[in-house]
């Protein structure tokens, strides 16, 4: 079967800073892939390049067999298929939780408000926040905000989900509730790309772990391989610090 995401020798520079130095990956359907590495190793940039929140300097990206840099590609259609969850939640503060979730399905998928609302409510129920539908984000805790953000991404019925350090901005006691939702998604067969420092979660949920160092994939394997038998001193060093 074709990989759903294929990235070939991706490079990204911010002026003088060469963040990605030739990254090539393939992600299969329903695979949960986790990126780990020190800060500045290019994990977040890689995710952001794949849905073109950052324009890559060079390299090719195929999503579901489509090269997303072809001029005839409507990047908005590609992004609609990729849900993204941010470290800083980025909920829209001027909308209630349910409006946050309904916005994109109505604007982009052009479904009726009624249908969007039903879908939104059932998603809120799924992330355990059914009773918070009409709350504004400022009334929600960090963990609740992030769960609403996940529901918002899911409302587009994406085929792929990106998580860019989804729990890094959370108080420790709220990390669990977000990870639970993510674990449930993984078990439902969602293709997920996760940048995270939650090694315990990665060990449990990920099918494959990629260790990035200085803009390159240094090491890749099952969680078991990476966590228990790291090949490189850099990986060992990193894991020694975070585990």
């Amino acid at each position: 079967m074709d990989p759903i995401i294929r990235v070939e020798s991706l490079h990204k520079s911010f002026r003088d800073l060469h963040v990605l130095r030739g990254v090539s990956i393939e992600v299969n359907r329903s695979e949960v892939v986790s990126f780990i590495g020190r800060s500045g190793s290019g994990k977040s940039t890689l995710l952001r390049c794949i849905n073109r929140l950052e324009e890559p300097t060079s390299g090719e990206i195929w999503i579901d067999g489509v090269n997303i840099h072809e001029p005839y590609i409507d990047i908005n259609k590609v992004r609609a298929e990729i849900g993204m969850v941010f470290q800083s939640f980025n909920l829209f503060p001027h909308m209630t939780a349910i409006d946050n979730i309904m916005l994109a399905p109505v604007c982009v998928r052009k479904i009726s408000r009624q249908e969007a609302k039903e879908r939104g409510l059932s998603l809120l129920e799924k992330v355990g926040l059914a009773e918070k539908a009409n709350e504004y984000p400022e009334k929600l805790s960090g963990g609740q905000r992030q769960r609403v953000a996940i529901a918002r991404a899911l409302a587009m019925q994406p085929r792929i989900m990106f998580f860019d350090e989804p729990t890094s901005a959370l108080d420790p006691e709220m990390v669990g509730e977000v990870l639970d939702v993510m674990a449930q998604m993984a078990s439902e067969g969602m293709t997920m790309l996760i940048v995270s420092h939650e090694m315990g979660f990665i060990r449990e949920a990920a099918d494959r772990v990629l260790f990035l160092d200085e803009g390159k994939i240094l090491e890749e394997g099952t969680p078991d391989d990476i966590f228990n038998r790291p090949q490189f001193p850099v990986t060992r060093d990193f894991l020694g610090k975070v585990l």
């Binding site: 849905n51 908005n76 609609a80 993204m84 980025n90 829209f92 604007c107 982009v108």
Partner: peptide, 26 residues
């Protein structure tokens, strides 16, 4: 914030929709 615009674009909203629904109201 830039994050607001990115969140909107990441959902597949066009720049104009982002302006209309996310940036302008705020």
């Amino acid at each position: 914030s830039k994050g607001q615009l990115e969140a909107s674009r990441a959902l597949g909203m066009t720049p104009w929709q982002t302006m209309q629904k996310v940036a302008l109201p705020q």
